[in-house]
Design a protein around this nucleic acid. Structure first.
Lengths: 343, 343
DNA sequence: TTGTACGCGTTATCAA
DNA sequence: TTGATAACGCGTACAA
């Protein structure tokens, strides 16, 4: 176990003062060329590494960003994280990743943990954006914050997906195929995405001259896709097309559809909001509304970096427009009816 | 921007010395009940959070673990990370995640970065375990280290998958189905998994009384699965069964097989080493040799924690046995031949 | 241009 | 049991 090597060791060995050594290390102030070289050589020789904790305590900045999401095992969040990470590391920041797993308590703990680490900024995807009062009182929340795809607290910058616009694209596409009863199954209403999607559905249906039917909308808890889809597709007046809000629902939805012996797209058209490996690999491949999580991660990072640079700038909101990717899970309604009648 | 609140603020406001405040905060030493309560109340009132950088600089320990893998966008690595993270957080450690993306330079940079942060331990999955001499000289490598699924440097503890045993299970299963020409396609030989798999194949074939044919083994770079599989299955004496080493190869392999208009399992049996969503969802579902990445992440964490506790304990090696999960991608050879003849 | 010395927030030692 | 104070490693104001 070698004892740690400090800037004093460098100074002593190079025959200079710690001040000079520090100036060489940070490139601040002028240092004679010969001394500089001597110090630089010494640093390499004895393998000196500045202690970032000491730097942090001295400078009041930790060069660390906190990144708090539900779970990096979710592929799209892993992509978000990587996008943010590359951008932040490029700027010299380290990234502390924490997962709240949609548990308010865990989230609070993580926030407190990050606060003790004196993070310089936070990228946060809350697990509940309707009750952020807890966070407001939470210590360390005055830190520059970018909230991803949630309605964050007052002081935070926002990076959000325009889910309403995505739903609109899906509805226009489906309406163009002749569908008149379009269902939406999405997550719980205490998070921005679900609210935005429902709003988008309402507007898009109205524009298409179609009625908004509350029974064709299901906004409940996660992981219940099987149940929600089953309920919706077993009704006699079931929708002929369903929009699935949330990529994590696709598995359950497909199982439900299969269990009812419905065939996609013959008996039911399906659009998923959010791309996934499953959507690409399913047969038929699922038509989706998608956005690039890695790019969004980078966007969160740059937003945060500029917020850190100019803390008093007005609050910003970045809205990312999704893109419709047509694959094989939707059929024109006429064909749909024909096939159904032929059975 | 509220000024940071320090332990001195707590002490002053509670009317005690910083020493007493510190003792209350850390639960070290005895403090009179009334003083303790007063301090505790004050801490909550003014929202004091110990500055972990200062704690670190004082105690010489950062309560931080570095976790260096190729890429958390790989689902199984995300699982490993979460497993390790939960275990380490439970023990009061924060986890600094870095990705080297199989680039030696990035890896060195990450190592240096983590070293400056004075991590107390490292969980590392090297991108090349045949040239670790660079790491040895790298500063900060004296830190307690657990290497995952690589042949790490001398001082590191090892957590490895028994890939050889996994291949053996696959070979025994395939041989039992009548297969005599069994191919193996795996990653580059400068990493432990490929070496272990080839070794396992050799031993298992020998035990089954089958010849080891070098041309039925392909150990090249990643991401070339399509090419490697194509080459192997277009040969006139192609194997009747292929073992795929590395879950990331499955996509390319399936495309290659499809491109040759071979049908699984009729024309070709397939076993994948490493489970994946794709393996479960493909039709037919792919028979795999699998292991639980989250459990392994936890194992890495506990190994590291005990290493930190007892730095001088002898080097340990944990070998995890894979498990064969039979699904639908393998057929008895007889049926295979019959079908082929009927074409 | 260089060196000295102080302070960052904390813990630990030592006297009281 | 409590308080005063030294140290941890570093950056920087100030003096030389």
């Amino acid at each position: 176990m070698t004892r740690k090597v400090t800037i004093r060791d460098v100074a002593r060995r190079a025959g200079v003062s710690v001040g000079t050594a520090s100036r060489v290390i940070n490139g601040s102030g002028n240092v004679a060329a010969e001394l500089r070289q001597s110090v630089e050589r010494t640093i390499i020789e004895i393998g000196f590494q500045p202690n970032s904790a000491a730097q942090s305590i001295r400078s009041g900045t930790s060069r660390t960003i906190g990144l708090l999401v539900s779970d990096i095992r979710t592929l799209r969040l892993a992509h978000l994280v990587r996008g943010a990470q590359t951008e932040l590391e490029r700027a010299g920041y380290g990234v502390f990743i924490a997962c709240h797993e949609n548990d308010r308590e865990r989230e609070a703990q993580a926030l407190q943990f990050l606060s003790r680490r004196r993070i310089d900024g936070l990228i946060h995807s809350n697990c509940n954006d309707r009750e952020t009062e807890g966070d407001a009182t939470a210590p360390g929340m005055a830190v520059p914050t970018v909230v991803y795809d949630r309605d964050g607290p007052e002081h935070a910058d926002l990076v959000q997906i325009a889910h309403d616009a995505g739903i609109r694209q899906a509805v226009e596409y489906l309406a163009g195929l002749g569908h008149r009863r379009i269902g939406l199954i999405t997550g719980p209403g205490f998070m921005y995405p679900a609210r935005s999607r429902i709003e988008g559905l309402r507007a898009a249906l109205s524009d298409a001259g179609l009625p908004f039917e509350p029974r064709n909308v299901s906004a409940t808890s996660f992981g219940e896709a099987f149940v929600d889809v089953s309920n919706m597709i077993t009704r006699p007046d079931r929708p002929s097309a369903i929009i699935l809000g949330g990529a994590s629902m696709l598995g359950g939805a497909l199982r439900a559809i299969r269990a009812q012996r419905l065939e996609i797209p013959r008996d039911l058209s399906l659009v998923a909001a959010g791309d996934s490996e499953l959507a690409q690999l399913a047969t038929p491949a699922i038509t989706v509304v998608r956005w690039d999580m890695e790019e969004i991660g980078r966007a969160c990072a740059t937003a945060l970096l500029s917020r850190i640079k100019t803390p008093d700038a007005p609050r910003r909101r970045l809205l990312v427009d999704p893109e419709l990717v047509v694959r094989g899970s939707c059929a024109a309604l006429a064909a749909n009816l024909r096939a159904a009648a032929a059975e």
